[in-house]
Amino acid sequence: MPNNNPTPSKYEESGVSQTGAETALDHILKHILPTRQFNTEFPVKADIGYFANVIDLGNGTGVALCTDGVGTKMRVAEMMHQYDTIGIDCVAMNVNDLICIGAKPVSMVDYIACSHLEPQVFDQLGQGLAEGARQAGISISGGEISQIREIICGIDLIGAALGHIQLDRINTGQNIAEGNLILGIASSGVHSNGLTLARRVLLGETEDEQKENVHKYEESLERTLGAELLEPTYIYVPAVLEMFDTGLDLRALVHITGGGLLNLLRVQKKGIRFVIDPLPDIPPVFSLIQQRGEISDAEMYEVFNMGVGFCVIVEHANDAEAVQKICKRHGISCHGIGYVETTGDDGKEVVIPSKKLKSEGGHFTPM
């Protein structure tokens, strides 16, 4: 049985400090936020902290911008000597953020920091980037390869993406209301968040253990551990763009990345509670991670997507049915996973009644 004591954090023990990241961000933002006054001709339209932001170009149009990378998922690719899918993850992490704000992804640039220049590795990285671009319907318009052997050992892959948007289509969840329905679109697995914890739990603490165990076949997954962890992040762009085109009243779109379902708290609307009920079935990889790592429910739902890669919030059951039909046409599973309540104050929270969890201070805690 999992250990339901929320402390100590297994994620922090693996080397990732979520509290430290929040503090670091605060120190950067106090310098970054005032830069908006330096260019008032093309103003920034949203608060920092959402999945993407929009620059007003005038005439009612804007460009949406975001950036993200693949994180320590690259370590799995290195151990597997397989780099042909990691580029899909880089594209996915960016374009899935862009659509949250209501933008149509247009193009992307990549940044590769490396300590070596093996041609076969870069050929495979290019294959993955191209496949991700094909799935998202975007171009890759440039990039940079930086040889920084003194700083990095291996490869790091990061992208920055651009999208087009009409300013009256900017969606930061500002119109969410009581009774709105939460739809969860299935993930393809761990995606590109929480890999440091997943890798250490499933593959072992030391590098030698991980290199050996990454090739081990796991019956519950019906493939090797490495293949499971390397499964590319699902790209939700085609399905969501169809939702845009059909004129559905989409109250919010939320990419479930690091922070799990706590990403729902990024929406602009205040005084609301997201009730996750019924909880969708948990894919086997997450059950395996929780059991082997003896990780609490609170930490699992805070670190991993737990099978929900993207959320769409709509007003009515008819809209929910339309979203589900679109997802089905695109071959992805989508189910109702909850609803919105008002709280009577200015706060925002997520509760998972079946797990007796509630959000508090940016974390899940037992109710």
Rank of each mutant, 00 (worst) to 15 (best):
Ile282Trp: 00
Asp281Val: 12
Leu288Arg: 09
Val267Asn: 11
Glu321Gly: 12
Asp319His: 07
Glu299Gln: 15
Met306Glu: 04
Val308Asp: 09
Pro280Tyr: 13
Val308Leu: 13
Val314Lys: 04
Ala317Arg: 10
Glu315Trp: 00
Val323Asp: 04
Asn318Pro: 00
Ala320Thr: 07
Gly293Trp: 03
Val275Cys: 09
Lys325Asp: 15
Ile282Lys: 02
Asn263Arg: 14
Phe304Asp: 00
Gln291Pro: 02
Arg266Gln: 09
Leu264Lys: 06
Leu265Met: 15
Pro280Asn: 11
Val303Ser: 00
Arg266Gly: 06
Val312Tyr: 09
Ile276Tyr: 02
His316Cys: 10
Phe310His: 10
Val308Trp: 08
Cys327Ser: 11
Tyr301Gln: 06
Ile289Leu: 10
Ile272Met: 04
Arg329Ala: 15
Val314Asn: 06
Gln268Arg: 04
Ala320Arg: 12
Val312Cys: 14
Gln290Trp: 06
Phe310Pro: 02
Arg329Val: 14
Gln268Ala: 09
Ile295Phe: 05
Pro284Phe: 02
Cys327Val: 10
Glu315His: 01
Val323Ser: 06
Gln268Glu: 11
Ile295Asn: 01
Arg266Ser: 09
Phe304Trp: 03
Leu288Cys: 13
Pro283Asn: 07
Glu315Pro: 00
Gln268Val: 03
Ser287Val: 10
Lys328Glu: 15
Val312Trp: 09
Ile272Gln: 04
Asn305Gln: 08
Ile313Glu: 07
Asn263Ala: 13
Ala298Thr: 01
Gly271Asn: 04
Asp297Thr: 00
Val285Pro: 01
Gly309Glu: 01
Ser296Gln: 05
Pro278Leu: 13
Ile282Asn: 00
Lys270Gly: 07
Phe274Ala: 12
Arg329His: 15
Val267Leu: 14
Met306Arg: 00
Val303Cys: 01
Ile313Asp: 06
Glu299Arg: 13
Val312Pro: 05
